[in-house]
Amino acid sequence: MTNQDRGSLLPGLAAVALFGVLAVVFVRASFGDPAGGFAGSEGVTASIGYAMFNIAHPDAIPSEGFLVAFLLIAVVLDAALDGAVLLARRDEGGEITTALRSDAAETDTTEERVATDGGTVDADSDDTQEGHN
């Protein structure tokens, strides 16, 4: 983080203006009377659990069912994971490198390596105890 990161502060005025407008609106708005706490004797966390799986419990705090949304968000997260993996893979010297493989060709193979017994060995040597296959 250097000064390079700082853009002009001028556009920030737009954010300030937005806050001004929002604040005026919120302060001047009337919201009616609050409900005054949750109905139902179950705890908030337990009730969220019920709502999440569409379980009708007589003592739960009222809420809508979210089972479908739950499943959908599961799929979305999965897709996001796949997307992230897809975006992160790269093509380097004809070899595709992804985050899911341990043999990422990050290292220069001609470099000397640390042998298991200490010291270094040549990469060309036939030391099968080296991790790379």
Partner: peptide, 15 residues
């Protein structure tokens, strides 16, 4: 950033 600025100003003006 410019797009974001335009979006924000647009929102302010709309509000």
């Amino acid at each position: 950033s410019n797009y974001a600025f335009l979006l924000t100003m647009g929102l302010v003006v709309l509000l």
